[in-house]
Design a protein around this nucleic acid. Structure first.
Lengths: 343, 343
DNA sequence: CTGCGGGCTGAGAACGTTTACAAGAACGAT
DNA sequence: ATCGTTCTTGTAAACGTTCTCAGCCCGCAG
């Protein structure tokens, strides 16, 4: 049953026989005589009084809450980020709440509007798509905001980025080193922030490393999920047969591995597979998934730090930090025996 | 940069040359002359006014927010639940925020206190451990609350439960049907809600199905994670060698499979493994993980429904619903060829 | 004996909304 | 012309806090 009516400061004051101001003072550890403090606390206990956060926030213009909004909690990369953010925020006294927009820009805007107009003192968001609506919102942020993921340079918000282009380069280079020549790319939707960045990254890497464009089939999956990965793999493999596949994230990669399995292709013997994000999933799967880490935990930590600093000094110039990728090699890209024999 | 000072209702009113009441009215779609509405909207746009959620909530005693607090977003079962809750809540007009207590009861209390005293109109929580502090809090909930997971019957909150005892029974029965006789149990910590329930469930199932207690080694992992699963498996297998292992959740099960792999044991030939929760992970792993579904999505949906209904009618008697488990069979418990030959 | 600094305390004004109430305008009916 | 109705609008009181003031009482120095 919900409270009949919650006790208020006034009722406590009345019961203790003091003024509301005094009650407020003892509750906030401001100077007060021991005798009165005791009376007040007794009254508080008796009534089971607990301060109304809403009223307090209205007065002090602070909620003590930070919000993290991500596209999809189902994607383990966001879980990693969230853990990092939570850890970084823990000692600051702020509570952290998470919102997920289900990859839906409209929903994201709703959340953003709701949050930024009251319920949080700061915002970390990692948008999947940056719409015009989002941009205009970000152009005049109503509260300290940091965005994870690449956004236009002139946006007056702190920004932490991954270097997925270089990351993909690492993966491609590694695959070449293990003897693969024809490398396919399974991306997520191209109209997303990471999708676009990774597409550019793959194209650049392929060009720089001298791969034949025709031997590098590309496909964009419906979204960044397991199921979409399977579908995309099936489609790509119906027309091409590269000897390695780079996937735009781990979820896609695992889907791809499953599709390969059901086609009777062995990883890594018949096809090497690399993922991206180096999530927990990469080491849960068989064979272990080689994955390029985009530093999601670091990005989370940095984002949290930037946010906290900005809250402290709202006037500071927005900063932009990029975290370096690195490759984590596991079984899914081991050199096929065939290559060894061919030598 | 954050707002210099946000425009208020008063400023809009002044600019539009009307009273604050009128502005409030047009903003809330209450009757007003078209002419005035237009003037007000113009002023709103010009100032970029957006209502202060805090002040509004203080007045109307509503935040339009619901909170879901779970132990660990890293556990895919909570992700499933959250999706279900989000879907169920979507059309209600409430925003959903997620909090995670990192399996830390103190943190959970902090969140609970914070949330229940201001920032949410309703609460769904799925506590890992129920401490005394939590119980006393739940005994007089300050706002509509539903808890997912078994709690004492006399708690005046809505409660949705899984039937893990029966669930484990299904798994054990299935393993017996596939020819296994010696079945081990890898549980999570016994001092957690699911840990305790699943322990009772396994004991009961083993007894009912006539298993020899000595052939059913049990162990409690450190927590419900992948890493803890590996460790627990190693320890259990150093002393026993059952032919099947039931695990208290999918994360543990996947850890167990990894440990088996590194010991050179094949799943399901040398050892069958069953998980619990039937999360996405179960079908991402090789071999596919047989898992007993505890209906996490359903529990989420039901919890959301209960909450919404309670908000509508705070006086209604608390309800208790239990969702039935079912077994999802995959490769990890396929009958070993050996058994076929033995016949 | 007067004046003055200092610790405690209370009155009351904010914070930015919503909303009950009342006042006025417009209009048709008597 | 007068009297309701109805429609629109403004005034002001909340909502539950925090916090600035000013007042009080006390002791102590001049």
């Amino acid at each position: 049953m919900s409270s009949p009516t919650r006790p208020t400061l006034g009722q406590v004051a009345q019961l203790a026989g003091v003024s509301v101001a005094s009650v407020s003072r003892v509750l906030n550890d401001l100077p007060a005589s021991a005798e009165m403090a005791a009376r007040v606390r007794a009254a508080v206990d008796e009534l089971g009084y607990v301060p109304d956060a809403m009223a307090r926030s209205l007065k002090v213009r602070r909620t003590e809450q930070l919000a993290l909004v991500v596209a999809d909690v189902g994607n383990p990369v966001y879980v990693t980020m969230m853990h990092a953010v939570a850890a970084a925020v823990r000692t600051s006294g702020y509570r952290l709440v998470l919102s997920t927009d289900q990859s839906d820009p409209d929903e994201e805007m709703r959340i953003l509007q709701g949050l930024s107009h009251g319920y949080a003192d700061g915002l970390i968001l990692s948008p999947l798509r940056v719409t015009d609506a989002l941009l205009t919102e970000l152009r005049q942020p109503r509260l300290p905001t940091v965005v994870i993921g690449t956004v236009p340079d002139d946006l007056p918000v702190d920004n932490v980025r991954a270097d997925s282009a270089r990351g993909i380069g690492l993966a491609v280079k590694h695959l070449i080193a293990t003897g693969r020549r024809s490398i396919g790319f399974i991306n997520g939707p191209l109209d997303t922030v990471p999708g676009a960045a990774r597409q550019r990254g793959f194209d650049r890497a392929a060009r720089r490393l001298g791969l034949d464009r025709d031997e590098c089939p590309r496909i964009a999956a419906q979204d960044f999920t397991f199921a979409a990965g399977r579908l995309a793999a099936r489609e790509l493999l119906s027309a091409h047969r590269p000897d390695a596949l780079v996937c735009a994230n781990d979820l896609l990669a695992v889907g791809v591995i499953h599709e390969l399995d059901s086609m009777g292709l062995k990883v890594p013997q018949d096809m090497a597979v690399a993922g991206m994000d180096d999530t927990d999933l990469a080491e849960m799967v068989f064979p272990g998934l080689t994955s390029v880490s985009l530093g999601s935990a670091d990005r989370g930590t940095i984002a949290a730090t930037l946010l906290l600093e900005r809250i402290k000094d709202p006037a500071r110039a927005p900063r932009r930090v990029t975290v370096a990728p690195h490759l984590v090699v596991r079984g899914s890209t081991a050199a096929p025996l065939r290559v060894v024999r061919d030598d």
